[in-house]
Design a protein around this nucleic acid. Structure first.
Lengths: 187, 187
DNA sequence: GATTGACATGTCATTGCTTACATGTCACCT
DNA sequence: AGGTGACATGTAAGCAATGACATGTCAATC
C-alpha cells in the first residue's frame, strides 16, 4: 500500500513523470524514507493505471510513458495521509544487533559498535549533503515556508544523531565494564 | 536471514525453547526490534533443523517440541553479529507521512502531527514499562553489567523521545506559519 | 562506424511476510 | 458433561520485495 502512496506523492510533487523519473526520484529524495527499485515500480504503475489512480498522459521518445495523477489518485493519497495510523512493523537490523550484542565478549562487542558508528556517520553525512543541496536549490527561487520532504529530512537527521549518541554512550559503558573486569580478574 | 538470527539469539538466551515459547518471546522482549508470527516461526524452525542450526532436544506434552541451538547455530549467530553490515531497507510509514505532509493544508497537517504524537507517547509508555519490568526482575537476582536486550531498549527509548521532540517542533513551526498566513491574508 | 553509457521498460524466480484456515490437547470452571 | 481459554503446531493463499535476466533507443565519443 505504502508504495502506491509514495508514488502518488512523488507524482503530485512532479506534476507528471515517467516510471524512470520516479525510479530516480526514489534514489534521490525519498530514499531515506522509502525504497523501491524499478522492478517494483513499473508493475505497480500498471496496476494503479488499471485502478484509475494514475493515467498515461503522453508517450515520449524511447517508449517513455508519462504518468499523471487522477482525481481518484489525489483522493486516495489524501485519505491515507489524514486517516492512516502508522503501525509500520518494527524491523531494524541495527536494533537487532544491539539486542544481541551482550552475547559477544566485550572486546568483540566494542568492535561491532565502532563499525555501527562509522556506518551512522556516513549516513549522517549523506543526509546533511541532501539538506545542503535542498537549501541551495530553494535559495535560488524565493520559495518560503515548509517544503516537500523538509520535515522528513529533519526527522531523519535527528534520528541518526540520536543513534550516534547512543553508540558513543554504549561504547563508553562497555569500555568501563571491560576495565573493571580486568581489575577484578587479572588472570 | 534476520528472522533466523533473532530465533538463534532467543534460543541462546533461553537455553532451549519450543516454537510456542519463541512466538511468545517475539511478542514480549524482541517486539520492538523484530516481529514475526507463529506461521513464520514454525516453518523457519523446520528449515533450521534441516540446516543443522538447531535440534529437537525433547518432545513434551501436547506435541510440544523443545529446540536447542547447535554449535553450527552458534557459529552462524556469531558470524552474523560480527560480520554483518546492517543495511536494513529504510522503510518508515511515519517518515513517509512526514515527507508528504506539506501536501495537506496547514490545519490538516497539524491534526496529523497531533495524532502521530499521541501514537509516539503510547509507544514511549510501553518501552518505559518494559524497562521498569526488566529492572525489577534484575533487582531480585544480583546480576550486574549489561544484560540481553538492554542496549536495544535504550536505543529504542532514545529514538522515540527524539521523534516526540521532532513532532513538537514541527507542530510549533507549522503553527507559526499558520498565524503569519492569517495575518498576511485576512480574507 | 563502433562502442559506451545514460535513457527506458519490462519479466521472472525466489524469498519474506501476513492473514486466514485448520486441528488437536489439556486444565479449569460450571 | 460441556464450555472456555490457554497451550501447541501446523498449512495455504496471496501480496510485497529483491535480484537477475532481457530488450531496445538514442547521443556522444573515439
Amino acid at each position: 500500500m505504502s508504495l502506491r502512496i509514495a508514488l502518488l506523492g512523488l507524482l503530485t510533487a512532479y506534476g507528471s513523470a515517467s516510471g524512470y523519473d520516479l525510479t530516480k526520484g526514489f534514489e534521490r529524495s525519498v530514499a531515506h524514507v522509502w525504497q523501491a527499485g524499478h522492478s517494483q515500480i513499473y508493475p505497480e504503475l500498471a496496476k494503479m493505471t488499471a485502478d484509475g489512480l494514475v493515467t498515461v498522459a503522453a508517450e515520449g521518445a524511447r517508449g517513455r510513458k508519462i504518468y499523471s495523477i487522477t482525481p481518484e489518485g489525489r483522493a486516495e493519497l489524501r485519505a491515507w495521509l489524514i486517516g492512516h495510523d502508522p503501525s509500520g512493523p518494527a524491523r531494524s537490523e541495527v536494533a537487532l544487533q544491539a539486542f544481541l550484542l551482550p552475547l559477544l565478549e566485550t572486546r568483540e562487542a566494542l568492535d561491532v559498535l565502532e563499525r555501527l558508528k562509522t556506518h551512522m556517520e556516513h549516513k549522517l553525512a549523506e543526509l546533511e549533503a541532501l539538506r545542503a543541496a535542498k537549501q541551495a536549490a530553494s535559495a535560488q527561487e524565493g520559495t518560503s515556508g515548509v517544503r516537500f520532504g523538509d520535515l522528513a529530512l529533519d526527522l531523519g537527521l535527528r534520528q541518526v544523531r540520536t543513534s550516534l549518541q547512543w553508540a558513543d554512550d554504549a561504547i563508553a559503558q562497555l569500555g568501563r565494564q571491560a576495565t573493571t573486569e580486568e581489575g577484578a580478574d587479572p588472570s
